[in-house]
Design a protein around this nucleic acid. Structure first.
Lengths: 153, 153
DNA sequence: TTTGAAATGATATGATGTATCATCAGGTTT
DNA sequence: AAACCTGATGATACATCATATCATTTCAAA
């Protein structure tokens, strides 16, 4: 069983546990993101599904499906890039924690890492001091990856 | 001399120090953001300039001006909201540090706070461990502000 | 097998952002 | 002052991202 299949199975289990259905179209979008191993825009996913599955999936549907997948914590939206990416921890047993996305401004490569609890607590405390309350915390940072840093020096 | 005037003066000084010109149109956009005391989209600024100054400033120009103001660190782009906001520290003498924006998902109010150095160092260290390098660090977080939290409970 | 809710399709449109070439304004040189 | 250069702005078109709305399909439960 391939790694992709394992992840898709776990995704399906997770949906079922919430009483939600991981339909065929939803699987197509999710596996598209998993296969591509990068962040993709909704319209890129439209093209991908057409090319890969020979099915025309209108943009509206893709957006709806992406929204569903985000609710299920299977996909994250990267606001810095206006793109969507599969969660890197779908098949992990540990708690996912607060995701932090490092986005290479040069090659668009994205790395998802997890912030340690102490740092989150500090951030959260700052937020509370300012009279605000965190909602679905997620951090995104504009970076250069190693390769691009070297190649642009 | 009003606070707004003071800030605009400081902005102009700062530009001059970089050999850049804070032209009339650029002042209009910046003071629009300062007067409104909130984040605005480029097209909202187009409307604002038309209404406030009776001048038609095409969207393309507003985008160019916003880009200029960002380079001068007078304006920040909020990617979570696709809006722009005046830097809260234009007239401050202290170093600005890494800005963190708390955006109320409900009323769109934005608070700019500064993260303490230790937290930044930790974040930066995490980023380096992952083989990435920070570029223009800035954090944005989806929050609820006090008022909206109370009103929605 | 009906039927009701959820998912998807179709269509239109709004919102955000950029490419490109033309024109204008303000200094500098002569 | 006139010519000239550069940076700023205008005009136009278009690309990209996203949502509103109503119609149709699918699928599981009654």
């Amino acid at each position: 069983m391939s790694n992709l299949d394992k992840i898709m199975d776990r995704a399906e289990d997770s949906c079922r546990a919430h009483g939600a259905r991981l339909t065929n179209k939803r699987k197509q979008v999710l596996s598209g993101l998993l296969k591509s191993e990068k962040a993709m825009s909704a319209y890129e996913l439209v093209d991908f599904c057409r090319d890969e599955y020979g099915e025309s999936l209108p943009p509206m549907s893709v957006y709806r499906i992406l929204e569903f997948l985000q609710q299920e914590s299977l996909v994250h939206k990267l606001s810095l890039a206006n793109k969507y990416i599969a969660c890197a921890h779908i098949a992990c047993d540990h708690d996912h924690g607060v995701p932090q996305f490092l986005i290479c401004s040069h090659c668009q490569r994205v790395e998802e890492i997890t912030i340690n609890q102490a740092t989150i607590d500090t951030l959260k405390q700052n937020v509370e001091s300012a009279g605000f309350h965190l909602v679905s915390p997620q951090l995104e940072m504009n970076c250069l990856c190693d390769r691009c840093k070297d190649s642009t020096v």
